[in-house]
Amino acid sequence: MSTTRHVTHHDMSAHHTARGLGWFSLGLGLAELLMPGPISRLLGIPEQRGLIRACGIREIATGVGLLYSRDPKPWMYGRLGGDALDLAVLGWSSAYGDKPTNALIAAGTVAGVAAIDLKCAADLRAERRPVEEWDYSDRSGFPDAADSMRGLVEPAFGTDRAHPNGYQIPLSETRH
């Protein structure tokens, strides 16, 4: 008799996306940590090198968490929080910085990555929902036990069974 059980399946595509975002965070974080001057000048906020470095440290920490954690979900929420902070800084830079167009382009890029982060976080959250799965491990495919079904087909084929290539196979050779 079949039974149902509740299981949780991991969405490996969400885990692969989270891992890719972890590598992206590491790369971006290293760039922000090692090159805060060029990045801050590009965004039109040259006096904010400390802020750029702080964002880099946050990105590196999030990236390491995504790459080494068994459960990447909390780290994805950390990425989403970082996206919100980055968008706030870029919004400020587009209004008060020296290069508003560059800040708006960067904000559009961050918004695109934030959409990927949001989708990945939603997929990771959905994998935690139990799903109903039927357990057929007690089934053989026969209406009765396999031992009681053995030999019931042989009378329909006579004493010998035809091989697909035209050979005759004696029944004594087909039994195990």
Results as ranks from 00 to 15, higher is better:
residue 157 F to S: 06
residue 50 G to Q: 12
residue 52 I to A: 02
residue 152 L to G: 08
residue 158 G to K: 05
residue 106 A to R: 05
residue 81 G to I: 08
residue 107 A to H: 09
residue 50 G to S: 13
residue 59 E to L: 04
residue 150 R to P: 06
residue 15 H to A: 05
residue 87 L to P: 02
residue 42 L to V: 13
residue 117 D to M: 08
residue 49 R to Y: 03
residue 152 L to N: 09
residue 106 A to F: 13
residue 160 D to V: 13
residue 139 R to G: 04
residue 157 F to C: 11
residue 40 S to Q: 06
residue 73 K to G: 05
residue 113 V to C: 03
residue 130 P to E: 06
residue 90 L to E: 02
residue 130 P to G: 03
residue 86 D to M: 02
residue 18 A to G: 07
residue 35 M to C: 09
residue 72 P to N: 03
residue 24 F to V: 01
residue 139 R to W: 05
residue 17 T to K: 03
residue 21 L to F: 05
residue 29 G to V: 01
residue 159 T to W: 09
residue 102 N to L: 09
residue 73 K to P: 00
residue 79 R to H: 07
residue 139 R to F: 07
residue 104 L to F: 04
residue 42 L to P: 02
residue 17 T to P: 01
residue 38 P to L: 09
residue 129 R to D: 09
residue 67 L to H: 06
residue 59 E to K: 15
residue 78 G to S: 14
residue 103 A to V: 10
residue 128 R to V: 00
residue 85 L to C: 09
residue 71 D to Q: 03
residue 72 P to L: 10
residue 146 A to C: 05
residue 39 I to D: 05
residue 32 E to T: 06
residue 108 G to R: 05
residue 156 A to I: 12
residue 34 L to C: 11
residue 73 K to W: 02
residue 40 S to H: 10
residue 78 G to V: 01
residue 96 Y to K: 13
